[in-house]
Design a binder for these strands. Structure first.
Length: 935
RNA sequence: GGGAGCAUAGCUCAGUUGGUUUAGAGCAUCUGCCUUACAAGCAGAGGGUCCGCGGUUCGAACCCGUGUGCUCCCA
């Protein structure tokens, strides 16, 4: 068969993925083998895979494929997340482009559009996952809004409500004015910005009558009438209409005289009290704080303490509300500008200064988050966090890499606040709570059940924090209205490792028992609180068992310049384009080769190119080996040739004219090479195994890469390669294809497609690499390995010497070896001849004059050629080496002459130093002899 | 402001309880090669004050302290 010049990934990839699917290799059902379960972190259903996902999925596939080839029943569950805010925003945008306003639709109509959208775009990520070669069990694909999943989420909500862990209440929450929904604390991202601090004057009065307020309003046309004022500093002048007090520190003497007085809010002229509280930092601004309980969490708490009125001056879309009295309907930041102009005109404005501050942005919409008082649903976290904390602290769940995230995790869980789980959206699991006309609340899995509760008058308001005022129930069955809100997406994804096996909807089922707890969770460190911690909570709460044994955190994928990948920067490449360009294996290689666990990955297409080149290297090695196929010299053929000396026609067809048989020598040195590589392979396999167990996958890949490229291709294949158009011994050929197959197996988890292809091209195969089980690792023989390393070292040194002597590759040399142990070199003579292009090798007991000399350990090699040696250069080299050796000897000798070292250090260490000393001395002698020999 | 981490070759990173030939790899660079698998290649080479300073130790890239710079998390 003719092999193409270069490897062509696309056809191969499609062929093998289909084959694996047809043979149901990825499908798992419980059996007697141990399970190895991985649940995919479900990407957003209408999203595309970015490079971060690509890294995560690749890592998971490597682990899953490795497990599948190591005796485990591997099960990798794919799926996607409904991503309520993100998806709803996309659908709203799509409708807007069509000229449809969401507000004109009913909930049902909107959801119909949303599901259409999901059907249309939901397949994209699945296609990408398949293209990447991920060995997921497609029969288990789960979506967080699947029927059973939806029911599970509802069930959990009702259960937690009945346990008193879920409650409804008015709280200061994070409001996203763009998406018009509440957010959890975790969904707010803070950025440092340079803001402005505005200094404003508030008129003071001690008159507590309403008349004073009115007089002020009318008498001076709203201008600041006197010098009797207090100055406050604020970043948000547009919220002054919501001010309900001015607060100063009770120890602040500057303001001690203001006790019992009032201030007048500029522009709207509301009278507000001056209050005193330790909370205020006298050193900040003017030491006087305007208190706006509706729009700042600290002010809110201050308001609670001092029983202040709450005036909410903002609408849900971020425009000023009726309560603001002025600029009603104007967007908050536009209003800020207008108000500043008016404050200046009317003399209330003193000055402004720049001020470094932090602004919270919505993770989903990017809008500036507004603290807002709102009635929402919450989950008590204190009760949930205990077991989740101990599971990690006790080492039941291991986090990789190392302890790096432990402190953060601990801090978060110990300080976690209640989780706001309601969202003012339609896309998601609708909260199963119903209200009667009087506002009584009934929480149940179905409307029928809620109706029954209502009929019996059981509001089930078990939480003491329940904030809705109830009223006595009518005895007749009331008309119920369902809560319009949906649950936070993470309130569904925290059940993921259980509910993909129907663990909530059908608890205690056989599959759940078999697959849960899962083996390893691979995810980005950015969702440690959103998701990882909460899955541990849900798992410990509902299964009384951890959801996974290990967590592998991948780093963030950044571009070459270290910037985060983002759409706006345009630095996030398209996965399918990359696969088209380089092939899936090369993409996997490129992304893995430089991504140690937990470290950020600087993505550079150059590493994908390296992957593609590696593909090509493998392909060419295959071409070489295939050239030997059909040229094997079996014993029978050998005998045939020996006996008759005349080739049969069919033999002739196979080999053409053969002028000589493979020599005994060739077989002998090939056996040397085979023996060496067999041991080298075992050694590398053992290393890789350890690296897998430590989740150091990029290290493992490096070991395999260098094993294949350097040891197999550059050394082994060159050592066993027969001469041009010469036959190869059957045994050598078989060993070589066997090694090649083993290498492909070792590499398979990382680069599944090309390895499977080559494995099958190496010869007729009954099995597929995808499910081929790894053989047990044998212990490598150290003497054999050392011998191989010595040979490599000698060859490299001789080639270097050739280079330095200006010898062209084609120019031959005569090699003389001076060694106490010539037997070693005699065995590998023919390899040496070929590798350094020598025409002869002789053994000598004395120095060879006028030859270039190379010293390895205690042996010396003389290179003689027609070309005149550049003695000056050789001398310089030797002197440099001598210098180095002497320096080294000096440091060793110094160490050994230190009595305290000899007395304190371990015996092995001292012995080693002595050996180093002896070696260095021997080498120095060799170099000096060589120098003396150079004239 | 609180916490965590990082700093080793031009770049990205290894370096195991402190001792393993006066620091290793890949990429990039340079030199020589179109050698009968592979120029997407082959054979070589050069390149480091292990961030600065101080300490512990017979011995420090590694442990401790301190300074500087960067990253992340939390408020």
């Amino acid at each position: 068969m003719e092999l193409s010049k270069n490897y062509n990934p696309s056809a191969t990839e499609e062929k093998w993925y289909k084959c694996w699917m047809d043979k149901k290799y990825f499908h798992s059902t419980p059996d007697e083998r141990p399970s190895y379960t991985v649940v995919i972190p479900p990407p957003n259903v209408t999203g595309v895979l970015h490079m971060g996902h690509t890294l995560n999925e690749t890592v998971q596939d490597i682990l899953v494929r490795k497990a599948r080839m190591s005796g485990f029943n591997a099960c990798w569950v794919p799926g996607s997340d409904h991503a309520s805010i993100a998806t709803e925003a996309k659908v709203v945008q799509m409708l807007k482009e069509k000229g449809v306003d969401k507000n004109t639709l009913t909930r049902e109509e909107f959801l119909k559009y949303a599901f259409e959208w999901k059907e249309k775009y939901g397949g994209i990520i699945y296609n990408q996952i398949a293209k990447l070669g991920c060995s997921v069990d497609w029969d288990r694909t789960t979506f967080t809004m699947d029927d059973h999943y939806y029911k599970a989420v509802i069930k959990v909500f009702v259960d937690l409500y009945n346990k008193g862990l879920v409650y409804r209440g008015a709280r200061m929450i994070n409001w996203d004015p763009a998406a018009k929904t509440a957010l959890s604390d975790e969904e707010v991202e803070f950025k440092d910005v340079v803001g402005k601090l505005y200094y404003l004057k508030y008129q003071l009065t001690d008159d507590s009558t309403e008349i004073a307020e009115k007089n002020l309003h009318s008498s001076v046309n709203g201008h600041l009438p006197s010098d009797n004022y207090i100055t406050i500093a604020t970043q948000r002048p547009e919220t002054i209409m919501g001010d309900t007090a001015i607060c100063v520190n009770p120890t602040d003497e500057r303001y001690a005289h203001l006790k019992g007085k009032y201030a007048i809010v500029p522009l709207i002229y509301r009278r507000i009290p001056i209050i005193f509280d330790e909370y205020v930092d006298p050193a900040f601004g003017t030491g006087a704080l305007k208190v706006t309980p509706a729009h700042d969490i600290n002010d809110y708490n201050l308001g609670l303490k001092h029983s202040l009125e709450v005036v909410d001056t903002l609408n849900e879309d971020g425009t000023l509300s009726e309560a603001a009295q002025i600029y009603v309907g104007v967007e908050r930041f536009a209003a800020r500008k207008k108000i500043l102009v008016e404050l200046k005109e009317k003399g209330y404005f003193l000055k402004e200064e720049e001020y470094p501050t932090r602004v919270g942005y919505s993770q989903r919409s990017g809008a500036v988050v507004e603290p807002r008082i709102s009635t929402q649903w919450f989950l008590k976290m204190k009760e949930m966090s205990g077991p989740a904390l101990s599971a990690v602290l006790d080492g039941e769940i291991k986090i990789h890499p190392g302890e790096r995230f432990l402190a953060t995790y601990k801090y978060w869980l110990e300080n976690v606040k209640d989780w706001c789980i309601s969202r003012q959206l339609w896309w998601g699991q609708q909260i199963p709570a119903w209200y009667d006309e009087k506002g009584n609340l009934f929480v149940a899995e179905t409307e029928e059940e809620a109706e029954r509760l209502a009929a019996r008058g059981e509001p089930r308001a078990t939480s003491p924090e329940f904030a809705l005022e109830g009223s006595p129930l009518a005895a007749n069955s009331p008309k119920l209205t369902r809560d319009a809100d949906v649950l936070d997406t993470w309130f569904s994804s925290w059940l993921w490792p259980m509910e993909v096996f129907n663990g909530i909807s059908n608890p205690g089922n056989k599959e759940l028992d078999y697959y849960y707890p899962t083996s390893v969770l691979v995810t980005g460190q950015d969702i440690i609180f959103f998701w990882v911690a909460r899955m541990i909570m849900a798992g410990t709460h509902y299964k009384n068992a951890k959801p996974f044994s290990d967590v592998y955190f991948t780093g963030m994928v950044r571009d070459k310049q270290g910037r985060k990948m983002s759409k706006s920067l345009g630095n996030s490449p398209d996965l399918l384009d990359l696969i088209d360009k380089y092939g899936a294996d090369a993409v996997r290689f490129g992304i893995m080769i430089s991504s140690p666990a937990g470290n950020d990955l600087l993505f550079d297409e150059a590493s994908l190119e390296q992957g593609r080149n590696f593909n090509n290297k493998l392909w060419n090695a295959l071409k070489l080996v295939k050239m030997w196929e059909g040229r094997q010299m079996t014993e029978e053929i050998k005998e045939l040739i020996d006996d008759t000396f005349e080739l049969a026609d069919e033999t002739k067809q196979l080999f053409g004219e053969i002028d000589h048989l493979p020599s005994e020598e060739h077989l002998d040195h090939s056996n040397y090479a085979i023996n060496w590589f067999a041991n080298r392979l075992q050694q590398a396999k053992a290393e890789v195994e350890i690296l897998y167990s430590q989740f150091r996958l990029s290290e493992a890949l490096k070991v395999i890469y260098s094993l294949i490229w350097d040891d197999f291709c550059s050394w082994y294949l060159e050592w066993v390669k027969p001469g041009f158009e010469q036959p190869i011994e059957d045994e050598v050929y078989n060993k070589t294809t066997h090694f090649f197959g083993e290498l492909m197996q070792l590499l398979h988890p990382f680069m599944p497609f090309i390895t499977e292809e080559i494995y099958h091209l190496l010869g007729e195969k009954q099995d597929d690499l995808c499910v081929k089980q790894f053989a047990a690792i044998k212990e490598a023989n150290n003497d054999v390995l050392t011998g191989g390393e010595l040979l490599k070292q000698v060859i490299s040194a001789l080639r270097d010497a050739r280079n330095k002597s200006g010898l062209k590759p084609k120019e031959t040399i005569k090699l003389f070896i001076q060694s106490a142990n010539t037997r070693v070199y005699k065995r590998i003579e023919s390899i040496l001849l070929k590798q350094v292009n020598a025409e002869s090798i002789s053994y000598v007991n004395e120095t060879v004059p006028n030859a270039t000399v190379v010293a390895i350990e205690q042996d010396k090699f003389y290179i003689e050629s027609d070309k005149k040696a550049d003695t000056a250069a050789i001398k310089a080299e030797l002197l440099k080496d001598l210098d180095h050796q002497k320096g080294f000897l000096q440091s060793v000798t110094k160490k050994l002459s230190n009595e305290r070292f000899v007395a304190n250090a371990k015996a092995e260490v001292v012995d080693l130093e002595k050996k180093k000393q002896a070696d260095a001395e021997a080498r120095i002698r060799t170099i000096e002899e060589s120098l003396a020999n150079l004239v």
